[in-house]
Every structure is written in C-alpha cells, then in structure tokens.
Amino acid sequence: MTVTVEEVPLTPTPAPEDIKPGRRVRLVGISPACLNGLTGITQADPASRATTRLDVLLDESSTEFLRRDHRVNNTRKVKVPGPDVTRQLLRGIPTGGMFYAENDS
C-alpha cells in the first residue's frame, strides 16, 4: 500500500497566543533541554503583561523527572527541585515552546 502526503491528516500546531492560563501543556523545543517533554499547568503571572511567556506548574511526575535529570546541573536557568517539592514552578516559559497536552497520558 502506498501512502501519499495528501492522505496524512495534518494537525495544526497551536499559535503561541492560543496558550492560555489554566491549561495542561507539554514543553517542547525549548532551552534548556532538561525541560523538553515535561508537562504541567500554565499559570498567569500577575506581575507580567507579556502574553508570550507564562509560568508552568509542573505535575508531580515531571517534577520528579526534573529532580533526577543530570542535565539540570549544567544550567543556571533551572534549579533542582528540593526533596520536599512535589510540583515545581517554572517562571517565564515561552508559549512558543508549549503544546496542549490535555489528552496526554
């Protein structure tokens, strides 16, 4: 069976302005690399008027993954979550590196 490009449905990627506070997202294609693949809930930053960056409250599994990721020690942008932290807050994450993860398991 031959598959042509026309037969593959395209899933449009959300534009950065579509990412709103209170939505579950996955971080992709951002720096530092230790953040790629992590999931969490977007949070509004009341001190910022920028719509291109949001805070992200990582879920428990992503916080644990970040805690164990050796790459965190190679960057000053991200700190290793303490042993008592269950959900790490990441501040000022670019919305261009976020994709909705509502249906991720």
Rank of each mutant, 00 (worst) to 15 (best):
M1Q: 00
M1R: 00
M1A: 02
M1W: 00
M1I: 00
T2K: 13
T2G: 05
V3Y: 03
T4N: 06
T4H: 05
E6N: 03
E6M: 01
V8K: 05
P9M: 12
P9G: 11
L10Y: 12
L10F: 12
T11K: 15
T11F: 14
T13N: 14
P14G: 12
A15H: 12
A15C: 03
P16I: 01
D18K: 05
I19C: 03
P21H: 07
P21T: 02
G22F: 06
G22A: 06
G22L: 08
G22D: 05
R23N: 02
R24A: 15
V25D: 11
R26P: 01
L27T: 00
I30A: 08
S31C: 05
S31G: 06
S31R: 15
C34I: 11
C34H: 07
L35P: 02
L35M: 14
L35N: 03
N36S: 01
L38E: 05
T39F: 06
T39A: 08
G40D: 04
G40R: 05
G40K: 04
G40P: 07
G40I: 03
G40E: 04
I41Y: 07
I41H: 08
I41V: 14
I41L: 14
T42F: 12
T42A: 13
T42R: 10
Q43W: 13
Q43H: 13
Q43N: 09
Q43P: 01
Q43S: 09
A44G: 02
A44Q: 15
P46T: 02
P46E: 10
A47H: 07
T51C: 08
T51S: 13
T52L: 08
T52G: 10
R53V: 09
L54C: 04
D55Y: 03
D55K: 05
L57R: 15
L57C: 02
L58R: 00
L58N: 00
S61Y: 08
S61R: 10
S61C: 06
S62M: 03
S62R: 01
T63H: 03
E64R: 14
F65I: 05
F65T: 11
R67Q: 09
R67N: 06
H70K: 15
V72K: 14
V72Q: 11
N74T: 10
T75H: 14
T75W: 14
R76P: 04
K77Q: 13
K77A: 15
V78Y: 11
K79L: 10
G82C: 05
G82L: 10
G82Y: 04
P83T: 15
D84Q: 14
V85Y: 12
V85W: 09
R87M: 10
Q88R: 10
L90G: 08
R91I: 11
G92F: 10
I93Y: 04
P94Q: 06
G96L: 09
G96T: 03
G97W: 02
F99D: 03
Y100D: 12
Y100Q: 03
A101D: 10
A101V: 01
E102I: 03
E102W: 08
N103A: 11
N103Q: 10
S105A: 08
S105T: 02
